[in-house]
Amino acid sequence: MVRKLHVQTAINGETVEFLCEPRQSLLEVLRDELHLTGAKEGCNNGNCGACSVILDGRLVNSCLVLGVEIDGKSVETIEGVAEPEKLHPIQDAFLENAALQCGICTPGFIMSAKALLDKNPNPTEHEVRYWLAGNLCRCTGYDKIVRAVLDAASAT
């Protein structure tokens, strides 16, 4: 068996250390080693965006990052978005706009929307649709999601 490597990283602002095999993706490390099961496995090949997280400020598919690659970096996941007693404005907007049905894609959409609004607090509908093109939802038809992101932008 291939030797496990030691990784030290910051996840949602907290220092975390773990051992992982090189072949374990960041998504597998988050879910199986660190028990952060918010990021979802959809396609496992970069098409669906259900595993989206923010790595050093950039949106990435955690299924396309190796766990060993995040040594010394910082990761934001859906678990770090809300405050203990208060949802993030994007989460509120998703509830208000009924922008989710089954919910599998939702953590990815919220991370993707957060990465967008962190960079561009007032996006146009066009910008929102292009930015979210890498996140698939098979329930809502996207319209409610786009409206939720635009609402969240105007609320903040």
Partner: peptide, 9 residues
């Protein structure tokens, strides 16, 4: 190329 998350890498 790809979407936003792909272009990040």
């Amino acid at each position: 190329i790809g979407g936003t998350a792909i272009q990040g890498r």
